[in-house]
Amino acid sequence: MKIRIKFTKQGPVKFVGHLDIMRYFQKAMRRADIDIKYSEGFSPHQVMSFAAPLGVGLTSNGEYMDIEVHSMKDCDTIMKQLNDVMADGICVTECHCLNDDAKNAMSLVAAADYTVTFREGKAPADEKGFFEGLLTFKDQDHIMIVKKSKKGEREVDLKNLIYQLSVCDNKIFMKISSGSADNLKPELVMEAYDQWRGEASPEFAFCIQREEVYGNTGNEANPVLVPLGLIGESVE
């Protein structure tokens, strides 16, 4: 049976990297007595995959992972079993049974929501001007950024990768492309803005939180973004 689990990553555990979060959940499955499936072979490992790695330092209200189990009572029980053995800041908020032919979360990822706020003491003097500028920046026909990689510099247009960018109560909200095809990090959006306005934000200026991860149930031309928790759910 395939199961999709949604969890949060809040507080100090934001400093635990992606690989260690995977190790953490492997141990958590055992502590919680989840009847998880193991792969074949001499050193079997749990059948478990994560939707999208989260960078060190980012918090999240919307992380997803898929597991396969041999048996289970129901989704609420799995949630309770796991939440009884979680570390502070990691909380399982949803659990869904998937159809047997459901695609795994990782392959579905198409977009993600983020909120971005200034870290304490890092806001610019003209905060209002900063946010106004950001909206003007967003409304350009092309949002260009020079990306530096090992192969050299190249210019990329972010316009089609930013689905939504708004500001409310000194908090930036962005819905941006994610996943294996066109992965856009929120940090890069802020960097593009800095490049555009010709002013650098201080180091570690932003607190970034992932809010939700989406799959695309439409097509490339007309995307329909649906939270991963609601894709492939089996109806009993």
Binding site: G11, P12, D20, R31, D88
Partner: peptide, 19 residues
């Protein structure tokens, strides 16, 4: 501070909060 933890190796060494 976050700034320090983000600028050093393996910040999870210093945060406690383990199971």
């Amino acid at each position: 501070s976050d700034e320090i933890l983000l600028s050093i190796e393996k910040p999870a060494r210093y945060i406690g909060n383990e199971v």
